[in-house]
Simulated scan of single mutants.
Amino acid sequence: MTFGEPSKRQINLVKALIRLKNYRKRQGLFVVEGLRATQEALNSDYAVEFIVLSDDFVKRYGEKFHGFGDVKVYEVPQKLYRTLSDTETPQGIMAVVRMKKFEIADLCTGNFLVVALDGIKDPGNMGTIIRTADAAGASGILAGKGCVDVYNPKVIRSTMGSIFHLPVMEEIDLQWALKELSIKGAKIVVTSLGGKRSYLDADYTSPVVIVFGSEAEGVSKEILNMPSEQVKIPIPGKAESLNVAVASGILLYEAARQRGALFPL
């Protein structure tokens, strides 16, 4: 199996997409790396512009992997591939993917469960929350202004392909979005250390938006001052708080349980 050779412009495009947020936004493109993530992209309704393989990957897997369809595939020397890759031990396969634009209406069909993120800065947390929301059957993600770029390579890697499974809206005016979802019938549940009720006492069975705040400061005062139900996760031990990605898993799986998504109630 032989593949084409990328142009210098395409090589520079990949380098810039991996390193520069503003360039990703202008081009409307992002990069996913690794065999699993590339397969997820190819199996999704996202448009894959082209794929880059290292010659080492081709030697090991080229004859076994035929899942590229009509997508253009380029082969580069392993040494060059390492200069493109954002990982320490690259698998040797990456894809350039076109971003998709989503609207509020894409997140709120049926009995929706939306995750809203206020000031999440850590790429690992962002990616893990997206992955957890996907696993729990959430309808979509709202990443407010001030959150880490959801197309950051570290975020994409942490989602383990979930970025392709549910709508993710980024750089959203969160106050506006929460008002819009409230108009559409959603209850707003906000996680807060100052919450008076346990998260277990909240009802997640009807349309709901669950808001999680930044790692350092939690949910902003502007969001806390909006009409909402504020809940907290009880901490019987000595830890001051929980990691936000862990907290998201706890609440989202309680919501999934109440909705009968795990076991019949």
Rank of each mutant, 00 (worst) to 15 (best):
T2V: 14
T2S: 15
S7M: 07
Q10E: 14
R19A: 07
K21V: 05
Y23Q: 05
K25Q: 04
F30S: 05
V31E: 08
E33R: 14
L35T: 02
L35S: 01
R36I: 14
T38I: 13
E40T: 04
N43F: 14
S44D: 00
F50G: 12
I51R: 09
V52A: 09
D56P: 00
V58Y: 00
R60T: 04
Y61D: 09
H66Q: 13
Y74E: 11
Y74H: 04
P77S: 04
Y81M: 07
T87D: 12
P90K: 09
A95N: 06
K101I: 11
L107S: 04
V115G: 01
L117G: 01
I120R: 00
K121W: 09
G124P: 14
T128H: 06
T128C: 00
I130W: 05
T132E: 13
D134S: 05
A135V: 11
A135K: 15
K145W: 03
D149T: 09
V150M: 02
Y151W: 15
Y151D: 03
Y151G: 01
N152V: 07
K154G: 07
I156W: 03
S158K: 10
T159S: 05
M160H: 12
G161R: 08
S162E: 09
F164I: 10
F164H: 01
H165R: 15
L166P: 04
E171H: 03
E180N: 01
E180V: 09
I183V: 15
K184C: 03
K187A: 13
S198W: 06
S198Q: 01
S198M: 12
S198T: 09
D203K: 07
Y204T: 02
Y204S: 01
T205A: 14
S206M: 13
P207Q: 11
I210R: 02
I210N: 03
F212N: 12
G213E: 01
A216R: 04
E217K: 14
G218Q: 09
G218E: 12
E222P: 02
I223N: 00
Q230P: 10
K232P: 02
I233F: 06
I233P: 10
P236I: 07
E240M: 10
V246H: 06
A247G: 09
G249F: 06
G249P: 10
Q258K: 02
Q258L: 12
R259K: 13
R259A: 13
A261S: 13
L265A: 08
